[in-house]
């Protein structure tokens, strides 16, 4: 599957899920209108707690307790890496955005960072393929079902552009 069509697919999938939920509730346009008034998450800002019931949760009573896990998304990446490394760095170190630094040492951020994952300080030197790195960040479950990284892609924590920027930062050689 080409990278592009994969992205289209997931967008339609998301739309369908939205429509299905609205239909399930049986309140069509009312729900859509109310949906629009919901707060939006602005990357870098705290995540509005009231939006979190769209993901699986712990509750026995609420619907989110029965939601299935987000489908595993296998993606490909065969492009040039020409994102914005400065923006990528910002995303990687921002607690409320990419927050890679919580678990990884990053180029230029060797102290104070987390030690949960491997250091990414010399990531560029290891010449790992872009497609591997992109998949790892988009949905690490493809590489390792028990991965400890968030599912950045499937749950829309980072966009494709965001990830390309972070990768451009990681692969940059000073």
């Amino acid at each position: 599957m080409s990278n592009k069509s994969c992205f289209q697919l997931s967008a339609i999938n998301l739309l369908m899920r939205g429509v299905a939920i609205v239909m399930l509730l049986g309140i069509g346009f009312v729900a859509t209108a109310a949906e629009n008034e919901k707060p939006q998450w602005v990357p870098g800002q705290p995540y509005p707690p009231e939006l979190l019931d769209q993901y699986p949760c712990h509750s026995y009573e609420l619907e989110c307790g029965q939601l299935p896990p987000p489908p595993i998304e296998k993606v490909e990446f065969n492009e040039e890496l020409n994102g914005d490394p400065d923006r990528g760095e910002k995303i990687a170190i921002n607690l409320r955005w990419g927050n890679c630094i919580a678990c990884h040492k990053l180029p230029g951020h060797e102290t104070g960072s987390g030690t949960v994952g491997p250091s990414l300080v010399d990531y560029a030197e290891r010449s790992l393929p872009y497609s591997y790195t992109f998949q790892r960040i988009w949905d690490p479950r493809v590489v390792n079902p028990d991965a400890h990284m968030p599912v950045f892609g499937p749950n829309r924590i980072l966009t494709k552009n965001d990830i390309v920027d972070v990768m451009t930062f990681l692969y940059a050689t000073k």
Binding site: Y47, L52, Y55, P56, C57, H58, P69, P70, H148, P150, V151, P154, N155, I157
Partner: peptide, 15 residues
């Protein structure tokens, strides 16, 4: 529940 993956990050408490 402690090992169930939930939320936007798809973490479990045990993650």
């Amino acid at each position: 529940l402690y090992f169930k993956r939930v939320g936007q990050f798809h973490y479990a408490c045990s993650s």
